[in-house]
Design a protein around this nucleic acid. Structure first.
Lengths: 104, 104
DNA sequence: GCGCTACATATAGCGCCGCTATATATGGAC
DNA sequence: GTCCATATATAGCGGCGCTATATGTAGCGC
């Protein structure tokens, strides 16, 4: 069901500020009341792909007394992609609803 | 984008009456103004899977002067599945919209 | 008769994406 | 000192929709 939705969700989580992988996964779970759950092990490969495609930028952050964490932030291309994907999903939603009347 | 949507779309196309594979593909394309296009070669394996799972039932129909065609119709289980998938998609879109505000 | 297009079904092989399983390692609670 | 939550990483798997390819018929224009 949640196939192919990961990208827009991750980008949206990074819209407000930079976050690290584990935080993203927990945030998705809590904000969706656990209705959407991407396995944490799935998040990292997705972030690598997003970074490879230039949509996010990762930076290692090391603080004394803390584990190193990799914080990802949106690139300008990432913000454009987020906007584009929002309208793509909106159109897809409308089309699928037109075909199947799932909206009631 | 249209990942995993094929099942509900095909089931919805069969809600009104039985149809054959090629007809389903063309109907999806025309009703969605070509926004959704499942390759015709993708439709057949999906129908086999739906039949294997008991959601549709296929019957060969041969008429004089026509190629044989396999008409698929919804089984009772298929109708139940269609109802269930409608609410699953409704909830999924609500959740995704809550997370990403794609609806504007 | 010949070639073209639309119709109709079928299967092989590929690629992406999210999954499970597993590994490694640290900080805090008890 | 044991356990859990935190945090990142990789290997391997499976499902689904794709392209490519195959087979064959009906109808049209010339």
């Amino acid at each position: 069901m949640q196939k192919s939705s990961a990208e827009i969700v991750i980008l949206a989580m990074l819209e407000a500020r930079a976050r690290h992988g584990y935080e993203i996964a927990k945030l998705i779970e809590s904000r969706s009341d656990a209705r959407l759950q991407y396995q944490i092990a799935s998040i990292y490969p997705m972030l690598y792909r997003l970074e490879r495609n230039g949509l996010v930028r990762g930076r290692w952050v090391e603080k004394a007394g803390e584990r190193r964490r990799r914080f990802y932030s949106l690139t300008p291309a990432g913000r454009k992609a987020l906007t584009a994907q929002r309208s793509a999903w909106r159109e897809f939603f409308a089309t699928l609803n037109h075909l199947t009347s799932f909206g009631g």
